[in-house]
Design a protein around this nucleic acid. Structure first.
Lengths: 140, 140
DNA sequence: CTCCTTCGTAACAGACTAGGTTACCAATTC
DNA sequence: GAATTGGTAACCTAGTCTGTTACGAAGGAG
């Protein structure tokens, strides 16, 4: 499965919550829209909660709701909450330090990759959950 | 392993070839710098060759060399050659079409994600293999 | 106060991915 | 023709992720 898998699922979860403002939705309700298991949704919501994007309430009549207005939640925040960003990934084996290439390729590449990832995040930050909801309603 | 793994390895391979201009390097030589198996390197080089970035020669005294000057190879081309880009990845299970969110979230998100990936690729396209080699030599 | 609902999380099974390895054929040079 | 090297298939292994079950913690309903 691709790397955006958790991210797209997390946005889906947030969109479901945004579609029912002021209500507490159970993980089972959200899981029905995702067509998956409630525990999978709870795992996503735990990450979103740790990032301060959603609030949860336990017990009877409990559930999840957005912690902020949809216009104050951008896609970069969701991606940051869900995709544990460990920086650029290199091969499991460290390169041979004998050659100049092997010795310095990783930090050099890491800088260029980080620059590209920053550009990607900036583009995601331009889109809020409210924008997503607007596009969703335009499609329907 | 992260998604950039094949990409970083491919850039490493190209950098090794660029460090020995006019020579044909065997997969075993390149693999020594990567500290991995020759077959893994050959798989990477096969993808790079299909994209027209490297040329191979079989038989005795055969090997690989860059097909263009390092200044004419940018990181976006390497990423495109190696990372089979299947577009945004969604959850294995299709969302429930009962709700508006589940029915239209995927195409809406795909557009926003594609915009972000385009920004990332554009940043990678600004860096050529010659830039990488220059930075490498500056570090040494 | 007790029970029921729901979140929070650990633990485990299954599918899938990717790297590593071996093996063998094709092509090229000497 | 023999040796070398790329090209590629087949398989093994390790790691990751989803899905599932299970159980404890928290909070409301009666």
């Amino acid at each position: 499965m691709g790397r955006n898998c958790r991210f797209t699922a997390a946005v889906h979860v947030c969109a479901v919550l945004a579609h029912h403002p002021g209500e507490d939705l159970t993980s089972e309700t959200v899981a029905a829209s995702l067509n998956t298991n409630p525990v999978v949704v709870r795992r996503l919501l735990a990450a979103l909660g740790a990032a301060g994007l959603v609030r949860s309430k336990r017990g009877s009549a409990g559930g999840y709701r957005l912690a902020r207005a949809p216009g104050a939640i951008d896609l970069a925040a969701i991606a940051l909450a869900v995709d544990d960003d460990d920086g650029p990934a290199f091969a499991p084996n460290p390169p041979s330090p004998v050659c100049i290439v092997g010795r310095f390729i990783q930090p050099v590449l890491a800088e260029f990759i980080e620059r590209a990832e920053t550009a990607r995040r900036a583009e995601l930050a331009r889109v809020t959950l409210a924008d997503v909801m607007e596009k969703l309603r335009a499609e329907a």
